[in-house]
Design a protein around this nucleic acid. Structure first.
Lengths: 204, 204
DNA sequence: TTCAGTTACTAAACATTGTTTATATTAATT
DNA sequence: AATTAATATAAACAATGTTTAGTAACTGAA
């Protein structure tokens, strides 16, 4: 029964084609540039055809958001070479911030935009987001165990750390940092992260 | 020359009427509910009339964003009764978070949405945002002077503090906290803020 | 091979947006 | 009263996401 399989394969290919076209539009001009009609035009199908492969536009944005997470996760894996948990955690923050500032549109999609959030809520789970969070928790756990951080609920400590880095990233991305001259911004971003990190670490 | 003044007054009144109608729609259903056409309908004018009083829709959103800042600033003033700078700074954070979580739509408008940000950039200033930031800086300065915090660049320290609270608020508002069960969320929010505060304070 | 049924697709329409333009009405000035 | 300026509108424009109803193509059995 190869026919059914061929059809499944075709369906997958079509989904990929749509997604890849969305990525192209996305990378060209950001998510404002992703419209159902533009995708349709690029792949030479009618707009309605898109809806045979994705429930709605947010479904496409969610798929894109997944791709962003893969990129982030990959970059985060590089810190595993660092043995010392405290140095690793510091790098964790820096890599996160770097990703956000170098891929502001992806970051927006992953952590700020409402569209993907609706899908997250619909599914009532967020595997890919959780994976990153668990990764952070593990790192924090090791820092506590090694005596670098004071004892605390892991969820709480990880959320605090995440909030700090997310706060920095999202204030920059959504342009609420105009009180800092452009040329100082990087200094302030790095400084803010370091300020908290240096303040919370327990001297050994 | 009373005529010109009457006209100016009328213009102001009309601007107020539009803004108040926008607020009403906003409070009913959030900013998604604010449309030029709905405002026009409510005040019994044509949609095009709106454009004689506001340049565009973002101009209206920006005006609303201003109102949010007034509300926040008022609530922030209450902490001035606290003498001890460290207790005051802690309260500062709590009041900020409280405002965000009790007025998520206003908070969104003020610190997350793109619409108002465009106006901020156009004007190349952000008086009302700066006022809040300066208020925070002053508080932090006093904490450093009183020996509660380690010496640091004021902008950096204030931005760090702001990022933390904003991070918490915006992750909740944009629904990226589904890894925490609803009933734990408040505990985690308060915990995260306390965790950092308790970690950065210098024991006297 | 032919015919019914499923699947893949599309054209067109629908329901919304924000915004502009050309036109009419109203008020003020000369 | 005639001209100029201000105020308001109807209608259109240009987008958007999404749905509907109908068409073409392919599939599996008679």
């Amino acid at each position: 029964m190869g026919i059914l399989e061929r059809k499944k394969r075709k369906k997958k290919e079509m989904r990929s084609l749509i997604l890849e076209t969305a990525i192209k539009l996305f990378l060209e001009e950001g998510f404002e540039n992703i419209t159902v009609r533009r995708i349709a035009e690029k792949i030479e199908y009618s707009p309605a055809a898109i809806y045979l492969y994705y429930k709605d536009k947010n479904d496409i944005l969610y798929a894109l958001h997944d791709i962003g997470f893969e990129k982030l996760y990959k970059q985060q894996q590089t810190i595993l070479t660092i043995k010392d948990p405290w140095r690793r955690l510091r790098k964790h923050g820096k890599v996160y911030a770097k990703f956000a500032l170098e891929n502001p549109k992806y970051y927006d999609l992953m952590f700020i935009m409402n569209g993907p959030a609706k899908k997250i809520k619909e599914k009532e789970e967020w595997e890919i987001g959780l994976r990153s969070f668990e990764f952070l928790k593990k790192n924090i756990k090791e820092c506590i165990e090694a005596g670098y951080l004071k004892k605390a609920n892991l969820d709480v400590a990880a959320f605090a750390f995440w909030s700090l880095t997310h706060g920095i990233a999202s204030l920059v991305i959504r342009e609420r940092c105009i009180m800092f001259p452009e040329e100082h911004l990087n200094f302030i971003i790095e400084g803010a992260l370091d300020f908290v990190l240096k303040s919370i670490v327990k001297k050994k």
